[in-house]
């Protein structure tokens, strides 16, 4: 049976992990490769690296990091942040990234999704959508959730699927950072409207939140950062608890 995925997200700046990470016995908490290996050993199903300060100048540094992760880590990983061209994606995949995640660049130029899926296959194209519920309507936001658009989340999700996205990474800006649970209502609606996998992001604070997003939100995967980085929810405990709640999970 296909299992639900648990995905730690690592924020990267100049090839280093930036968000505080508090692992026991970790020599260098800023080294993304050390962290990635540790997460893989703990049973993470995939990893996401988000280049939060992506610029043309530091592109080489990120590529170098991707290469090192691919050399040393034996689970799949996605790279996102500042990706807006076929050439850039080609370089990331050549360095060994399994998938890339595009966000604002896809909103600005939706054809990018078609170009990437035609050239590299849908399986490596993740479209990240940041959305916020404003007066009852879910609106897509750009630039890390700071710039609102008039685009409806569900319309956009259907469009990205049709254009060839292989997966959607949906972050609710209303829930992100709150540790009060994922946006399960919106996630559940997304699951009925599109037929590609959906990664839930934003709001993880407890084991119960993960159970809820898989059951109520019908999510295929759940992404979180701080609850993993600070050891608030150890991944082996989380996965065991999910299994005890009859959620298909890889142990």
């Amino acid at each position: 049976m296909l299992t639900k995925r648990i995905i730690p997200c690592l924020d990267i700046k100049n090839g280093r992990t930036v968000k505080g990470v508090n692992f026991v016995n970790l020599i260098d908490a800023g080294d993304p490769i050390v962290l990635a290996k540790q997460y893989a050993d703990l049973g993470a199903d995939e990893l996401v690296f988000l280049d939060i300060a992506a610029t043309l100048e530091n592109r080489g540094t990120t590529l170098d990091m991707v290469l090192k992760v691919a050399q040393q880590v034996n689970i799949p990983f996605t790279v996102g942040g500042g990706i807006s061209s076929v050439a850039h994606v080609n370089a990331l995949l050549k360095c060994g990234a399994d998938k890339v995640s595009i966000n604002s660049s896809a909103v600005k130029r939706p054809e990018l999704i078609n170009e990437l899926s035609e050239k590299f296959g849908s399986q490596c194209v993740v479209v990240a959508i940041d959305a916020k519920q404003v007066d009852g309507e879910w609106l897509v936001h750009l630039a890390g959730g700071t710039i609102p658009t008039a685009i409806n989340l569900f319309d956009w999700a259907k469009e990205v699927e049709q254009r060839g996205a292989g997966e959607i990474l949906f972050t609710s800006m209303n829930h992100d950072g709150t540790k009060a649970g994922f946006a399960n209502k919106a996630l559940g609606k997304l699951a009925t409207e599109v037929n590609i996998p959906i990664i839930a992001s934003g709001g993880a604070g407890s084991v119960q939140h993960f159970i809820d997003t898989f059951v109520e939100g019908k999510s295929d995967a759940a992404l979180a950062a701080s609850v993993f980085h600070f050891g608030e929810i150890p991944i082996p405990d989380l996965k065991q608890a999910l299994k005890n709640n009859n959620i298909p999970i890889r142990l």
């Binding site: 049976m1 296909l2 299992t3 590609i196 996998p197 295929d220």
Partner: peptide, 13 residues
């Protein structure tokens, strides 16, 4: 078929 999510993505046994 469309009865399942396509692609299948993730860990299966």
């Amino acid at each position: 078929s469309k009865r399942v999510k396509v692609p299948q993505m993730g860990w299966n046994d």
